[in-house]
Design a protein around this nucleic acid. Structure first.
Lengths: 276, 276
DNA sequence: TTGACAAATGACTAATCAGTCATTATTATA
DNA sequence: TATAATAATGACTGATTAGTCATTTGTCAA
């Protein structure tokens, strides 16, 4: 494990237990068995550490959910969606604690923006799922459905983030699927309008700047990769980004190729957004 | 306004903006136009201040909701319930920010216990409402309904706590009433069981110790009250607490008498719990 | 073995902040 | 008005902590 990763995992544990502000850099480095100075070789500041933590986990979560929504067939989608959400909460419960408990951290505007940004991305994915599953039927109420789903996620997550109760995940998910379907099929009174939702999630359309960012990420990634199918795929995708020549099917296949390369999930997610 | 109150309101603003840890006592006292020493005449420590803030607001909220649930007739109950919740969020949005953003505050176990305590009380009130409205029909699913309602509360509260969007409160409430009724009437797959819920909300039955506490509060209150119907009512209620002689109807009336006396809401709430 | 480079150290600095207390100001009382 | 009692002050203390940097340790290639 790299030093950076060691610091991140150690810090995560401590933040989950004590909170961000109450955890000193000294405490982190003591626990890691390294010196304080070594910490500053990996991170420019303590703030940079928490931002890195958020990126590290939220990228995973966001791209996982997006992938599920895109590849799962309709009949199983809602089930798989909730299943993946709660599995993630379970696998990364330490991180979930930090996020759910500490959206304050008012010191840092950047942090709030970051959390907002990922919340927006996940919201868009959920909306996409709602539209696919229920179509025109929920035209008026889809934003309410989005908020209801978010409500279910937060209310039920508390149940097993703080306590280690053995959970029948299948039962939980079945229960939420039923509730979601009920609301989708019978709700008639809308409250959240498109405009209201947009105030929070004003769309950031993919633009040239974004393209540059993706390109840069790909190039960094390519440098550290060894020759392989994955690398070849990424090279082709880079070409497609610069000048679109490949068919949609080929692109889809190439994305599938790189998806399971560690750290490539996020690039795959961004490219998927860009190409559509 | 008393000095204590001035400090509490000033601190609330600052905590809502900057968070608890990031706000220094100096900052609070500067804003109040008093010295740092004066702060410590009103509060033993900074921690005591946040605990006092939580008590001050949560007592109001808890007793308000409980009152609504007890006096509103079934047909309007759900509407009035949500209406009161969101009105409270709106009126005390600064406080809501502190609470919703800062359930961490990991320094202080006492604080977490306190928040848990009020959450439990409110949960019990909501459960009482659910049982009254839907009865046996939701025997299996009432705890899920409780979590769904909590989910709605938190998801929708975000909408207008952080942004000052003009809100059609009536529409919001209608929309949540419909959702709640839908879930209550059609949910068949339960997930949260009584036992699971009890792990969080293990009942603290009213006991002798509680009785002593209420008595002490009443006596403190009586000292600062002037002769009035309210004082007379409170004296009678104190008698009833020591030795029950009055009829239920009389007790109910007396409680109604003191309910609107400032600061008596909480005593009324506790007495209501005790007498039933 | 030597020397050059990089990695790691931890004592130190400067800043912050909760809480104290000797002193001063204000108010109530006689 | 004089005296006592109470309220308020703010400089100070001690503790903590983010971040720095001169020094040491480790690692190679020559």
């Amino acid at each position: 494990m790299s030093k950076k990763q060691l610091i991140m995992e150690t810090a995560l544990d401590l933040f989950a237990k004590q909170g961000f502000e109450a955890t000193s850099v000294q405490q982190i480095t003591d626990r890691c068995g390294i010196s304080k100075g070594a910490f500053y070789l990996s991170f420019k500041s303590k703030d940079e550490l928490i931002l890195a933590l958020i990126d590290y986990f939220m990228m995973q979560v966001t791209s996982d959910i997006d992938y599920i929504v895109r590849v799962t067939k309709d009949e199983e989608l809602l089930y798989q969606f909730y299943f993946s959400i709660y599995q993630t909460f379970h696998n990364h419960s330490q991180f979930a604690k930090v996020i759910l408990k500490e959206p304050s951290l008012t010191l840092n505007k950047e942090l709030i923006l970051k959390l907002n940004y990922y919340d927006k991305l996940i919201g868009n994915t959920i909306l996409m799922m709602i539209e696919r599953l229920y179509g025109e039927a929920v035209k008026e109420t889809k934003y309410d459905l989005l908020y209801s789903i978010k409500g279910f996620m937060s209310a039920y997550s508390q149940l097993f983030i703080y306590y280690n109760i053995p959970i029948d995940l299948n039962m939980l998910v079945e229960s939420l699927v039923e509730k979601t379907n009920l609301l989708a099929k019978h709700t008639t009174v809308p409250f959240v309008s498109k405009e209201m939702n947009d105030i929070f999630q004003f769309k950031q359309p993919m633009n040239e700047e974004m393209k540059e960012q993706i390109l840069e990420m790909i190039e960094n990634k390519l440098e550290e990769m060894e020759e392989s199918i994955e690398k070849e795929s990424l090279v082709l995708l880079k070409g497609q980004l610069l000048e679109p020549t490949l068919s949609r099917a080929v692109v889809r296949g190439l994305l599938e190729n790189i998806r399971n390369q560690p750290h490539c999930k996020w690039i795959a997610y961004l490219l998927r957004q860009y190409f559509e």
